[in-house]
Design a protein around this nucleic acid. Structure first.
Lengths: 204, 204
DNA sequence: CCTTGACTGATACGACTGTATGAATTAGAT
DNA sequence: ATCTAATTCATACAGTCGTATCAGTCAAGG
């Protein structure tokens, strides 16, 4: 049924199990069973449960970080780049639907951040600060400290990822349709653009 | 050091341990040790680990739900009530700093919602829908489907709770000061009001 | 003083955990 | 065909998990 190599099958199974049950709740026995691999396979191919976890996280955080940075530093006005960053998060969250739960776990939990997440945060952070600065310089973002502004932007994709399942239940099957998703993303972008705009002055 | 009754001490310890390590990661042995109670105390007073967990969640979700509903249905214009709801979340999250992590866990995780969270969501949901309707009727909220609008509102307190620790590290000790918190809340309320306002028309 | 019920305490049980071990199997190169 | 290295596999180990058990303690009522 699945002809991938053992490490690949392990990664796929681990991604799902970690997302469903969290790091502690996931067991190597369940992961190897779903991957149709032997109990020893995780130790052999990845070294330990923890290292497998890091490998799973990196699968996601590396392309996510890169995409976000690309959009944040594109050759466009800052107002468009902010929309691009929001899109980037939504896109990546949709491409790897298992991952947001993992990242959210780690952010909410008190413990030390796993290296893949920590590294990505540290790479993305300066790009976002610069983006806000550019936006304030060009007049599309209102003045004020950058931290709450960045929080307001990121809140949209992250909160969406957090309540995906719940909202899906409230909305029904329509929720899965691409048009609905596109509507949500467009709403988020508009909402942020208006929310961050300087005092009500016509913007052409 | 702590003269409370055993069940109370168990609740306090459990709240912390669950928040730090999630449900699976928390052990009855650690909880009872921190509560200076015997290993059997959880079974005796609460019946099981799961029921203790529900008791811990209810401590938070019941007052949170009530406060939010009060603010959402207050005798004020909808635009003010929306700000009140946002404030309510921030307030409650600050009053019980251990809890947001627990709720976020459960929302992000795939598994079935624990009854205390599920019940609160079902109580709060209709009040929020009505609030958006009122806002659209009075002209302070732009037209459109209510789901993305509600998501944009709730995203502010929830994302803040999610990244609290991280942002605290970036911002430094100033983060703990009440003025800074007040500034964040005010930013969130302004951001949402502007983001949801109808087309750019002077609002007095 | 004695009894009764609520509670605490120490210990035990079976199930499950991550990891280590070493033999069996397979694949590739010579 | 033969050797070698990579991989798979079954099993074992020590530790932890949630819960059950039951003897001990304690306070209140008679």
């Amino acid at each position: 049924m699945n002809n991938d190599s053992t490490p690949k099958r392990l990664l796929t199974a681990a991604r799902r199990v970690f997302a469903e049950r969290g790091y502690e709740g996931a067991s190597i026995r369940l992961i190897t069973a779903r991957a149709k691999a032997n109990l020893g396979a995780v130790t052999y191919h990845f070294g330990s449960k923890e290292l497998l976890y890091y490998a799973v996280l990196s699968e996601f955080t590396v392309p996510l970080g890169q995409t976000v940075i690309d959009r944040a530093t594109a050759a466009e006005p800052a107002s468009k780049r902010i929309g691009g960053v929001i899109e980037a998060y939504y896109e990546q969250f949709a491409r790897f639907p298992d991952f947001p739960a993992l990242v959210i776990h780690e952010l909410a939990l008190g413990r030390k951040l796993p290296p893949p997440i920590k590294d990505t945060l540290e790479r993305v952070q300066p790009a976002l600060f610069k983006l806000i600065q550019d936006g304030q310089a060009e007049g599309s973002v209102r003045a004020g400290p950058p931290v709450p502004i960045i929080m307001s932007i990121l809140s949209q994709p992250f909160y969406f990822a957090m309540v995906r399942r719940l909202v899906g239940q409230v909305v029904g099957p329509e929720f899965e349709k691409p048009e609905f998703r596109a509507m949500l993303i467009q709403h988020a972008i508009d909402f942020v653009r208006r929310g961050l705009a300087p005092e009500a002055r016509e913007v052409a």
